[in-house]
Amino acid sequence: MAAPSRKKALRFFSQFGAFILTRFGFWNCFSMLMLFAERADVKRKPDIEVPYLYIDMGVSVLCASFMSFGVKRRWFALGAAIELAFSTYVSYVGGRVHYGDWLKVRMYSRALAIIGGFLVLASGAGEVYRQKPRTRSLQSTGQVFLGIYLICVVYSLQHSQEDRQAFLNHIPGGEITIQLLVLVFGVLALSFLSGCYVRLSAQILATLLPLVVLFIDGNLGYWHHTRRVEFWNQMKLIGQNVGIFGAVLILATDG
């Protein structure tokens, strides 16, 4: 009886992870619209020029819609990865809005991790009834992107005073705990990059990420008022970490 129950639990978490990730595009577009409305009040520019911005959002919503309904999910997950990679590149090279270096690391590393999550989804991971064999090369590439994201987390904990303080405000043990987290995230990054013990590493990361979202990202007073991160930019970052959690759940149960 234990084995069928375990299979059901793994299937549920895998489907839950896919549910989160396939609907990420909706939240991403909504938070961007709210962010640019927030900027309009103070006459600041969006990251991408307006005509291209709406095209980008349209493609994102289209991919999210088809993925949510399970129509050609692999193809539209790949399309969502390409769309997000293109929009992230355009916003980065455009330089229409100035961000601090520490905030750039937070923003672009999470976007890279979401791209990796879409590649994992495009590989066929997380499908309940897999009619085609999964594409291991896509999954491995997605895992590498998640590993790079974790390297950026390690970098931020070592070199970003803003990120370090956010953790120090909510964890006991001070500097010792920070260094322990650096070690844990570093080992997880090596696991994703090398492809060894990916499922176990994803299970550990799936346990840590909700705590990070709740206590670190969710501290809106710190990020918005103290560090001057725009409110809807921070909400967008929270949504990205939730999307990463969805991708990690897929790998934790079907990696």
Score class of each variant (00 low, 15 high):
residue 135 T to F: 10
residue 132 K to M: 12
residue 66 F to C: 13
residue 123 S to Y: 04
residue 45 K to P: 06
residue 30 F to M: 01
residue 73 R to N: 11
residue 37 A to Y: 01
residue 42 V to N: 10
residue 57 M to C: 06
residue 92 Y to S: 06
residue 119 L to C: 10
residue 85 A to Q: 06
residue 65 S to H: 03
residue 75 W to N: 09
residue 54 Y to I: 15
residue 46 P to M: 02
residue 89 Y to I: 12
residue 93 V to M: 09
residue 30 F to D: 00
residue 104 K to Y: 09
residue 80 A to Q: 14
residue 129 Y to K: 13
residue 82 I to G: 05
residue 123 S to G: 15
residue 63 C to I: 05
residue 72 K to S: 14
residue 92 Y to C: 01
residue 48 I to E: 04
residue 96 R to G: 07
residue 72 K to L: 15
residue 89 Y to N: 03
residue 54 Y to T: 02
residue 50 V to D: 07
residue 122 A to F: 05
residue 104 K to N: 14
residue 70 G to I: 03
residue 36 F to T: 01
residue 58 G to D: 12
residue 126 G to I: 09
residue 40 A to R: 05
residue 72 K to P: 04
residue 50 V to Q: 10
residue 69 F to S: 03
residue 134 R to D: 12
residue 65 S to I: 05
residue 35 L to R: 00
residue 101 D to E: 14
residue 76 F to V: 10
residue 88 T to Y: 06
residue 66 F to K: 11
residue 28 N to F: 07
residue 118 F to C: 05
residue 86 F to K: 10
residue 68 S to D: 09
residue 68 S to V: 05
residue 73 R to Y: 03
residue 53 L to G: 03
residue 27 W to Y: 03
residue 104 K to S: 12
residue 126 G to W: 04
residue 67 M to W: 02
residue 51 P to Y: 13
residue 47 D to Q: 04
residue 121 L to P: 09
residue 63 C to M: 14
residue 95 G to R: 01
residue 119 L to E: 09
residue 42 V to Y: 10
residue 105 V to N: 06
residue 75 W to K: 13
residue 41 D to P: 00
residue 68 S to G: 08
residue 57 M to R: 04
residue 59 V to D: 07
residue 48 I to V: 15
residue 29 C to W: 00
residue 40 A to H: 06
residue 60 S to R: 08
residue 116 G to W: 07
residue 88 T to S: 15
residue 77 A to W: 04
residue 73 R to G: 14
residue 36 F to I: 01
residue 122 A to K: 02
residue 72 K to I: 08
residue 30 F to R: 00
residue 47 D to H: 07
residue 71 V to Y: 15
residue 88 T to R: 07
residue 40 A to Q: 09
residue 35 L to K: 00
residue 68 S to R: 08
residue 112 L to T: 06
residue 74 R to F: 02
residue 69 F to E: 03
residue 116 G to P: 04
residue 69 F to I: 10
residue 78 L to C: 05
residue 132 K to A: 15
residue 28 N to T: 05
residue 64 A to M: 08
residue 66 F to P: 02
residue 60 S to E: 09
residue 105 V to I: 15
residue 67 M to C: 15
residue 34 M to A: 10
residue 85 A to F: 13
residue 51 P to D: 11
residue 135 T to P: 00
residue 39 R to W: 14
residue 103 L to R: 01
residue 44 R to K: 15
residue 40 A to W: 10
residue 59 V to K: 02
residue 104 K to T: 08
residue 103 L to N: 01
residue 42 V to E: 08
residue 102 W to N: 13
residue 30 F to V: 02
